[in-house]
């Protein structure tokens, strides 16, 4: 996708969101309409050629469709909705990422030593969506997705980490303590 195409896509997404400030419901509908229109207009990019822009929009669509992240760390509600893990000190958190052209996706973060082989994600929802559920301790965690073993990608739905020690930010998820949801 060229820069000109990206600019156009940017404008379309922006136009959709400008319609949207009244409510999340309208925002969801407007964004999904824009993305569907775009999907009809374009062919799916070839494997390995998917731009971060496309991934961001695609992920946004799924997050909206999923009810703004209920039970997912990648929804707009970044304070993870969780379920108890077998160890009561930990909570299960599901991470979801949309990358239809990826050959493999893994989750890396401070919880697995940033090891790209430790937490592979599984394809779900046909071809486009990758997910994994892991137990996490309460607190703040930073993470990224690794696409095809090389590209470290932040979660387009999550807050950005302030630290960029090695030239790139990560994403942040907060796992609440106990059942407290302040």
């Amino acid at each position: 996708m060229s820069d000109v195409d990206n600019e156009e896509l940017f404008e379309r997404a922006g136009a959709a969101l400008r319609e949207s400030s009244a409510s999340d419901e309208r925002a969801r509908e407007a964004l999904v309409r824009a993305i569907r229109a775009e999907a009809r207009r374009r062919r799916t990019p070839p494997r390995g050629a998917m731009s971060p822009w496309w991934m961001a929009l695609a992920a946004a669509a799924v997050a909206f469709a999923a009810g703004l992240g209920i039970g997912r760390a990648t929804g707009r509600q970044f304070v993870a909705a969780t379920s108890l893990a077998s160890d009561s000190a930990q909570r299960h958190v599901e991470f979801v990422f949309v990358a239809p052209a990826a050959r493999n996706v893994s989750l890396v973060g401070d919880f697995n030593g940033w090891d790209a082989t430790a937490t592979p994600m599984r394809r779900t929802d046909g071809r486009a969506t990758w997910s994994v559920s892991i137990p996490l301790a309460a607190g703040r965690h930073v993470y990224s997705f690794v696409v095809d073993g090389n590209d470290w990608v932040t979660d387009p739905q999550a807050p950005l980490s302030p630290e960029q020690w090695f030239g790139q930010r990560n994403s942040v998820v907060v796992v609440p303590v106990g059942d407290r949801r302040s």
Binding site: V108, D110, G113, W114, D115, V142, W152, E163, W165, F166
Partner: peptide, 10 residues
Amino acid sequence: VGVALEGAQR
């Protein structure tokens, strides 16, 4: 520790 391991992985 996380930062050090992230740096190593990157």
